[in-house]
Design a protein around this nucleic acid. Structure first.
Lengths: 189, 189
DNA sequence: CAGGTCATGTAAAGCGTTACATGATTTT
DNA sequence: AAAATCATGTAACGCTTTACATGACCTG
């Protein structure tokens, strides 16, 4: 039994949450796990076929009128595979690719104004994400295991980043104006 | 002029920071940007060739005794390409893949003990990362633009995650013991 | 002299996004 | 009647990791 692929895990999980078609899975991914685990149609549809070939899901054609449509559901083996992964003590994958941070890392010799722009752009980005998370989702008071727990994490994390950006902006603004004062009227090309 | 590839940006940046060989670049990546931007030999060496073909870097053979070795440096065009990227107002790429969060998202029907294990594993992971960041790096008081700024971010971020995990663990411990009390002697297979 | 580090590279495989193609149904 | 949404899929491309291969030099 080959191990679940990364996308296979999302698909199985979404199926257990009650989603039926590839299309529905994608819809839910886009408003929920997307922020820490994305998936595209180009992954989802082939993955459903693979999982079916492995006997972990079962698809039944359920057209809506003349529109092709396949409803999938977990097989017992699929449910087991999902539970095994969830309970597995294996190292949890964690990867980040943050272009803003990379720019900051390389910003040693740049003038403070440019660095400030980068930090502001980072903040704007996380503010948009936070707004998305808040909109349409009730903020959980005592988040239960499940989607609310990840939501609680997302709300707190992006808020932390936004606060860090604000603190950093204040510091850079001081540096920028001090730099300007020292530089007097001089301006770079 | 083709745009810089993702890895091309790191390579150019590391070169400006004074690194000379592919090997040196990889060493620095592994103790610094790795936490928000990784790169492997399989990317770095071919990328150096590509950048040379594009005229953005220049390689000179500088063997150490009989050991092959190529020192690279930025050409004026390379420096320009780097500066252009750094100053570019284009959307900042940001991607996360967090297997722990994905598990939590799907943990609706799992028993609290298992969820607790996942949160503890997440915390352990971020604690190891935090330790790495603290070790060998002086904690910056007033981080200047450059590596210290990203370090400051990393220290704060991972600390936030660790705190979130701790809060969440406390909550789940209450739920877990309440669940046990309700369940009485019963145990699942 | 063994083991570690310096140093460079390639091939294959895996994972993923983007763009395209198709067509029915529902809403405006 | 147009536009949006439902629904499925594929092909090309791009990026990245892993594993392998090679060999010199340095340290204990």
């Amino acid at each position: 039994m080959e191990p679940l692929t990364p996308t296979g895990r999302v698909v199985l999980g979404m199926l257990r949450m009650g989603k039926r078609t590839g299309y529905e899975i994608k819809q839910l991914v886009d408003v929920s796990t997307r922020f820490f685990w994305a998936a595209s149609y180009g992954q989802i549809y082939p993955e459903l076929k693979r999982l079916e070939a492995q006997g972990l899901v079962e698809g039944t054609p359920q057209p809506t009128g003349g529109r092709a449509r396949t409803e999938y559901s977990l097989t017992p083996a699929g449910r087991r595979a999902l539970d095994d992964w969830l309970a597995s003590p294996a190292e949890l994958g964690y990867e980040v690719r943050d272009e803003g941070l990379l720019k900051l890392f390389f910003s040693e010799d740049r003038d403070a104004g440019e660095v400030l722009d980068t930090v502001r752009a980072m903040r704007a980005k996380h503010e948009r994400t936070l707004a998305r998370l808040q909109e349409a989702h009730p903020t959980p008071e005592e988040p239960e295991p499940g989607p609310y727990l990840s939501l609680d994490y997302g709300l707190g994390l992006h808020q932390w980043v936004i606060d860090w950006c604000r603190r950093t902006e204040r510091r850079l603004e001081r540096v920028a104006s001090a730099g300007e004062a020292r530089a007097g009227g001089r301006r770079r090309a």
